[in-house]
Design a protein around this nucleic acid. Structure first.
Length: 226
DNA sequence: GCGACAG
DNA sequence: ATCTTGTCGC
């Protein structure tokens, strides 16, 4: 098992791009893309990570919802020192440590994480949502606003229409029209979920906006506390 | 060699 | 991501 498998254990977190890339090749084998199955999902969390002080401080926001009633049951906003610069493909090493701190500050541990950013729709199938799932041990899905890798057909304008995002003959995400006439979002499995689960849970929390309520709530919690 | 490049 | 004002549109 990877040495960073438990929340908060980020003492040996990589600080350089070379270390991070080496670690990616080790932990990518531990990623599980499979249906949630019969696992009871009672609490779903929206996770959003941002930065302050020109990147020196990481700000992680998490809002936990009741999966059935969508009632807001818990939240956490935690600031911590940033360990890595932003490097395309290595975003998780910049964001996951802060997210783990916020996860540890919750009173209600969520059963599913909905993370801002890609899950397996990543060059090494290790986007921030996948990495956070792996590091926390929790099932996760990724919801991103922009493409990182892969190609896809034009998505029909009808709400909830979607086309597969493909790379190397592999479907890695669904490009979903969450709102008519608005740029689609990229929904991908993170860890311990599959594409169907990811689409399913994302759609359950969609209302009239481009992003699901989980993501919007975490986003607001963070920005309202600047 | 020339772009592209989550947050 | 973040730095930033007004502005077009439902």
């Amino acid at each position: 098992m990877a040495s960073n498998a438990a929340p908060g254990l980020t003492h040996d977190w990589p600080t350089t791009a070379a270390e991070a890339r080496a670690l990616q090749d080790t932990i990518r084998k531990d990623v599980v893309v499979a249906p949630l199955g019969a696992l009871p999902i009672r609490h779903v969390a929206g996770v959003d990570i941002g930065f302050e002080d020109q990147g020196a401080t990481t700000r992680a926001a998490i809002v936990v919802f009741d999966a059935d009633t969508h009632e807001r049951v818990d939240e956490a906003l935690v600031r911590s020192p940033t360990r890595m610069p932003y490097i395309p493909g290595l975003l998780s090493f910049r964001e996951v440590p802060g997210a783990l701190d916020a996860l540890a500050a919750l009173h209600v541990t969520p059963d599913l994480l909905m993370v801002d950013g890609h899950g397996i729709a990543h060059p090494k199938r290790l986007g921030v949502a996948t990495h956070l799932g792996l590091a926390s041990g929790l099932p996760s899905i990724g919801i991103a606003k922009k493409r990182l890798v892969g190609t896809h057909a034009t998505v029909p304008e009808q709400r909830l229409a979607w086309t597969p995002l493909v790379e190397r003959d592999e479907t890695i995400a669904a490009v979903l029209r969450s709102r008519p006439r608005v740029n689609p979002i990229f929904v991908s499995p993170g860890h311990r979920t599959d594409l169907t689960n990811a689409l399913d849970w994302c759609i359950r929390f969609l209302t009239r906006y481009r992003l699901p309520e989980t993501t919007r709530a975490a986003d607001k919690l963070a920005s309202h506390n600047k």
